[in-house]
Amino acid sequence: MSTIIILTVVSLSVLGVILAVILYFVAQKFKVVEDPRIDQVEACLPGANCGGCGYAGCRAFAESCVKASNLDNNYCPVGGNAVMKNIAAKLGMEVSEKLPMTAVVRCSGACGKRTAVVEYDGTASCMAKSALYTDSSSCQYGCLGEGDCARACKFGAIRMNAETGLPEVDEDKCTACGACVKACPQNIIELRNKGPKSRRVFVSCVNKDKGAVARKACSVACIGCRKCEKACPFGAITVEDNVAYIDFNKCRLCRKCVAECPTGAIHAVNFPQETNKQIKNDE
């Protein structure tokens, strides 16, 4: 009986030692030398793997940060300046602060403002719709309303408003990762400066048709009349292809353009109500 026990113990111990030796050599042989800083940087990141930074995921972003000589081309939109500062500290680099951004939907063509010309009967996808035809309404540039952007958002910051058929961005949740911008086949969504106290002015239309055509298609379209361009004291507004665009780096939020716009295509958001009235009175 005892021999059996001894034999078992001995043979198992010998086996254990042999395997341990093999494992040790294998581990040595296939050891992957990795910069420990990659792990440190990754730990700083939000871990959403959203791809907003342009890399496949947080790990890839961390690797690129470690390899890069400066952080100018690397920015985590989700984590924002706080995270970037952390990373810079870990890597002993400098980082310039970037202004917070948010996604902005540049279409106000809610149901009723555009006339429907065809019915859509297919899978719920803007991509599928845009491959078929330009739009089910008279405006071929507007929101298709199937919610590809809402599905693309990993932070639940976009939801489709059932009443207007347009997406709405929840600024508090939006991390400006840009997933919705990529998802939108009509290129309606843009990342813009969040602005002080979230106040910003933008043209809520991307219709490139000539004024008359655009207006016929949608009552709140930009008709490219250039009134805003002339009104802007800072040269922030340019009209190209019959559609105005406000450069958010130049815009000083004076809102003169808002008052000028004949169709109400320029939106000013998060300004206090009274001021809005005041502007109208000033006219």
Binding site: G122, T123, S125, M127, A128, A131
Partner: peptide, 12 residues
Amino acid sequence: IPLLDNIRLAKA
């Protein structure tokens, strides 16, 4: 199920 609608997009 609109199989082809979805497959066509994925294929592209």
